[in-house]
Amino acid sequence: MSKKLKALIIGPGNIGTDLLMKMQRSEWIEPVWMVGIDPTSEGLKRAEAMGIKTCATGVDGVLEHIIKDDIRVAFDATSAYVHAENSRKLNELGVIMIDLTPAAIGPFCVPPVNLVEQTKNLAMNVNMVTCGGQATIPMVAAISRVQPVEYGEIVATVSSRSVGPGTRVNIDEFTRTTASGVEQVGGAKKGKAIIVINPAEPPLMMRDTVHCLTETTPDQAKITESIHAMVKEVQRYVPGYQLVNGPVFDGNRVSCFMQVEGLGDFLPKYAGNLDIMTAAALRTAEMFAEEAANQSITLPARG
């Protein structure tokens, strides 16, 4: 029996397609279904051409195939509005849900910080926070694991072309969800998130700034070491994740300046913000698969 977990992708847009391309290289996850709601969608056509089963009638259209095709994990790249229903229907069938929307009904997951914890608990719904959260929360955590962080603030600057209509119409979700992630996963007592959209051409690479205020004088050597180690952890799944400058120490302020270059699978390389989401989501699913294969977790039983 293959160790790979079979997967369903909901939402055939940029994110879903990029995820599919990454998944085809995975040793742990096998893409089987791509689901959309528009039969003329380019994304569904592309998936079909890649040998993936497709369905244009939403999650409902694929429910009858879940057990038959032994689908174990689903990635939701649609919107916060429909996520809760998608998750409920699939969880009932024993499918683990990886949520790439800002719905955040399940616990946040930022792989190098708390993925192990989420998989060991077999959380049936994990949320990937936001692109800005994936790019910055590891740095906040790298500082807060050395000493208490009173306040963590992140500024994500992304190219206009990489920000889809869903994010634009509900930009407050981005700032709120990211700020919660900075607190809950990053370990800052108080979190703040800012997003700046830049329309420059050629598009700029995603860049992120992380400012933390530590409660006491920062231990420069330990924090620097911790940050460099964390950058390496993120690079395991996002090779283009880079500490451009810093950490800069100024009183109790610790600042890091990051750049995120994507792999350029489906989305262009400047869209590191989208890439870090898809890569983190896949990394999360792979961890479930690895834990299941070495029997440290047991997936929901099936007849």
């Binding site: 500024v155 600057t157 800012i194 700046v196 959209i197 830049n198 329309p199 420059a200 051409e201 700029l204 860049r207 700034t209 451009v244 400058n245 800069v248 600042s255 300046f257």
Partner: peptide
């Protein structure tokens, strides 16, 4: 081509 809000770019 920086835009309003990119103050963090200055120190960087």
């Amino acid at each position: 081509g920086t835009v309003g809000g990119q103050e963090d770019m200055i120190e960087d």
